[in-house]
Simulated scan of single mutants.
Amino acid sequence: MNAPELAADETLEPRARSGPLDQARLTHLMGYAATRASVALKKVFAKHLGPLQLKAVEFSILVLVASNENVNQKQLGQALDVSPPNLAVTLDRMVERGWVERVRSTEDRRSQIVVLTKAGQQLVQRAEKIAATMENEALSVLSPAERLLLLELLLKVSQPRPRRG
């Protein structure tokens, strides 16, 4: 059996596709849509808070420590779903930068409380001012009611569920 002959203008070389890709087989998946939105919002975060040399997890830690007295590493790790080793590395970096300190708990000597330094307090104030409006452009396609609904639904999906069975 002979291979079909190619016309003079046909080639066996694949050509790069031009134009946008068909994503229809993915756009019905919540995870795909959430990931695409997350990528867009991470770019916004990097653009606005990146100049402060602040990562998203560091920002979250700073805000949680500023909002909660006597918070320890375990509580931070649980709130942010960060493993103890990864959280320890992140906190070490934040201590080196002078943003937080670990202080031995007076109630439980085995526990260390994470507290903001003066520099950490100033940084979290600056960062929260920026964060208050940094997502406006990315979310401008949504009405205020849609923004609130999206936030409510995302928080609902992210909540831990009781185990069954």
Score class of each variant (00 low, 15 high):
residue 3 A to L: 12
residue 5 E to Q: 13
residue 7 A to R: 15
residue 8 A to Q: 13
residue 11 T to S: 11
residue 12 L to Q: 04
residue 13 E to I: 06
residue 14 P to L: 08
residue 15 R to S: 08
residue 21 L to P: 00
residue 22 D to G: 04
residue 26 L to P: 01
residue 28 H to D: 13
residue 29 L to C: 08
residue 31 G to P: 01
residue 35 T to D: 12
residue 36 R to Q: 14
residue 36 R to K: 12
residue 37 A to V: 14
residue 38 S to D: 13
residue 39 V to Y: 12
residue 40 A to K: 13
residue 41 L to M: 15
residue 42 K to I: 05
residue 43 K to D: 15
residue 45 F to P: 06
residue 47 K to R: 15
residue 49 L to F: 03
residue 50 G to Y: 05
residue 54 L to Y: 01
residue 55 K to M: 05
residue 57 V to S: 14
residue 62 L to R: 01
residue 67 S to W: 01
residue 67 S to E: 13
residue 68 N to F: 02
residue 75 Q to R: 07
residue 76 L to T: 01
residue 77 G to S: 05
residue 77 G to L: 05
residue 78 Q to E: 15
residue 78 Q to N: 13
residue 80 L to G: 05
residue 82 V to N: 07
residue 87 L to K: 07
residue 87 L to Q: 06
residue 88 A to L: 11
residue 92 D to N: 15
residue 93 R to Q: 15
residue 95 V to R: 11
residue 98 G to P: 03
residue 99 W to N: 00
residue 100 V to M: 06
residue 100 V to H: 02
residue 101 E to P: 00
residue 102 R to H: 13
residue 106 T to K: 15
residue 108 D to E: 11
residue 109 R to P: 08
residue 110 R to V: 03
residue 114 V to R: 01
residue 116 L to V: 01
residue 118 K to L: 09
residue 119 A to P: 01
residue 121 Q to A: 09
residue 121 Q to G: 07
residue 122 Q to A: 07
residue 123 L to N: 00
residue 123 L to R: 02
residue 125 Q to S: 06
residue 125 Q to D: 10
residue 126 R to P: 00
residue 127 A to H: 02
residue 128 E to R: 14
residue 129 K to Y: 02
residue 129 K to A: 13
residue 130 I to M: 04
residue 131 A to G: 11
residue 133 T to E: 12
residue 134 M to T: 03
residue 135 E to T: 11
residue 137 E to T: 10
residue 140 S to H: 08
residue 145 A to H: 12
residue 148 L to K: 15
residue 148 L to I: 07
residue 149 L to A: 10
residue 153 L to Y: 14
residue 153 L to I: 14
residue 155 L to S: 08
residue 157 V to C: 06
residue 158 S to M: 11
residue 158 S to T: 08
residue 159 Q to A: 13
residue 160 P to D: 11
residue 160 P to H: 10
residue 162 P to Q: 06
residue 164 R to Q: 12
residue 164 R to M: 06
residue 164 R to P: 00
residue 165 G to F: 08
